[in-house]
Simulated assay, not measured.
Amino acid sequence: MYLNAWLKSYYHIVRPIGVPGIRSGDIRSATGLSMPSGHAQGTMTFFTALALWLRRPLWLLLAILLSVAVGISRVYLGLHWPMDVVIGWVAGLAIGFCGWQIGRWWTYRGIPFGVALALAVLFPAALLVLARDVTSAVYAVFLLVGGVGAALEKRFLRTSLDPVLWKRVAAGVIALGGVVAVQLAVQAHLEEPLWQYARAAALAAWATVLAPWLFQFLGLYTREADSHRDG
């Protein structure tokens, strides 16, 4: 969502809320500026990546239909201009496709740890320098800590998902609990940018390093080397 926040700050287009002749509903879901639509971009990104992962034409069609439905609903509710949604769709499609390809390249190419760590630092650092507002800077911090965490996890933890269902469910509950704990810990201070950065860093560290380490410690997940040796 870094790109979404950056573009909103760049174009600085206000929402159609309050414009004569437009009736806006559910304005609680509409915060900040208008272009591009975060809902349209987010759903298109998610469903594009999901369709590529499942590799089924039917899922790709369903992803497009769901994303289009979400985008149209934002215009119907009077929360976005039509062009906001179109730009959101285009950005989401590009991010979903490019992100999927980069993820595959990152996972299967066997990048040396030093190179991976350098990329994980330099790219988000550049985004942080180019950030136009606090929101985009927060996303850059999340990418920075998350990228470093992912590189460290791949190098030292090498977490492997356990096929046992109850272990996956337990890990999911613990992961969600960690997210909620971070949110509750900083919720009262989120008006201050420093706490927004702290929340982003904590969530990224939890998702990429701390939670995988905890899952291994509790025996919910295994290490790749261990699973290969056992097999």
Results as ranks from 00 to 15, higher is better:
residue 3 L to N: 05
residue 5 A to L: 15
residue 6 W to D: 05
residue 6 W to V: 01
residue 9 S to D: 13
residue 10 Y to R: 13
residue 12 H to Q: 15
residue 14 V to N: 11
residue 22 I to C: 07
residue 24 S to P: 08
residue 26 D to H: 14
residue 30 A to K: 01
residue 34 S to I: 10
residue 37 S to K: 13
residue 43 T to L: 09
residue 50 L to P: 00
residue 56 R to K: 14
residue 58 L to A: 11
residue 61 L to Q: 03
residue 63 A to N: 05
residue 65 L to D: 00
residue 68 V to H: 04
residue 68 V to M: 11
residue 68 V to P: 08
residue 70 V to G: 09
residue 76 Y to L: 14
residue 77 L to D: 10
residue 78 G to H: 12
residue 78 G to V: 08
residue 82 P to H: 14
residue 84 D to M: 10
residue 88 G to M: 10
residue 88 G to C: 11
residue 97 F to L: 04
residue 105 W to D: 00
residue 106 W to I: 13
residue 112 P to H: 04
residue 113 F to K: 08
residue 114 G to W: 03
residue 123 F to E: 02
residue 126 A to W: 12
residue 129 V to F: 11
residue 136 S to D: 08
residue 138 V to E: 12
residue 138 V to H: 00
residue 141 V to S: 08
residue 146 G to F: 09
residue 159 T to E: 06
residue 161 L to V: 10
residue 162 D to M: 02
residue 164 V to H: 07
residue 172 G to P: 05
residue 172 G to W: 06
residue 173 V to D: 07
residue 174 I to R: 05
residue 177 G to D: 13
residue 179 V to D: 14
residue 187 Q to Y: 13
residue 193 P to V: 10
residue 197 Y to W: 11
residue 204 A to S: 13
residue 208 T to D: 11
residue 214 L to I: 12
residue 215 F to D: 00
residue 218 L to A: 13
residue 224 E to V: 08
residue 231 G to Q: 11
